[in-house]
């Protein structure tokens, strides 16, 4: 009886991991992926527990405890660094794209029945612009380039400019400005 239950449980846990991994793959925002990864970690910990029951050993106890801790830390760390979206950055669903999304969603039979009332701004395959890794990466890269260019301009100014201490002070102020 216990053996059958163990088999069934492992099968259920495997299906749960598959679902969570699909959500990690599709999830429109980082936060969706975070909770999906959290669930994956937890289900793997459960698998370790089930394996300890099945083969009657106690080798994985530490891993299960560590898994509980790590999942917590990861979720908190990532959630802490999600940028707060301002009003102007909120994606306005523009009608043409919405219509395109509608037709595409209707076209693929897979999503037509599954998620009927999904907002079009989060349509399948569309990355959320505010929290996708790629947009954030591109944005930070652009910012970096802009700063490098600004610094270069400053240096040129100082070369043809006047006293050093004044220039250094102005530069410091500018840098402080940038950091804010």
């Amino acid at each position: 009886m216990l053996e059958t239950a163990l088999l069934i449980t492992q099968a259920l846990l495997g299906a749960a991991v598959l679902c969570a991994v699909v959500r990690v793959f599709r999830g429109p925002s980082v936060l969706d992926r975070v909770i999906a990864v959290d669930v994956t970690l937890l289900v793997v910990s459960s698998m370790l527990l089930v394996d300890m029951i099945a083969r009657d050993h106690r080798d994985f106890v530490l891993f299960v405890i560590a898994g509980a801790m790590i999942g917590f830390l990861g979720a908190v760390a990532i959630a802490r660094f999600i940028p707060v979206r301002r009003h102007e950055q909120v994606a306005r669903p523009d009608p043409a794209a919405a219509a395109a999304g509608e037709t595409r969603t209707a076209g693929t039979a897979r999503t037509a029945g599954a998620e009927p009332s999904r907002p079009t701004s989060e349509a399948v395959g569309d990355e959320d612009p505010a929290t996708s890794w790629f947009t954030a990466l591109a944005r930070s890269r652009r910012e970096e380039q802009r700063r490098a260019r600004a610094r270069q301009d400053h240096d040129e100014d100082h070369d043809e400019g006047h006293g050093d201490p004044e220039g250094a002070g102005r530069d410091g102020a500018d840098r402080r400005e940038e950091e804010r």
Binding site: T4, L6, A16, L18, C19, A36, V43
Partner: peptide, 27 residues
């Protein structure tokens, strides 16, 4: 027997989480 029942319930909970993650509409 009780342990077996608990195991299956736990597995069903995990599967419910997976299916919910997949099918629910928002965060």
């Amino acid at each position: 027997g009780v342990a077996a029942v608990f195991l299956v319930i736990g597995g069903l909970m995990s599967l419910a989480a997976g299916v919910g993650l997949l099918r629910f509409p928002d965060l």
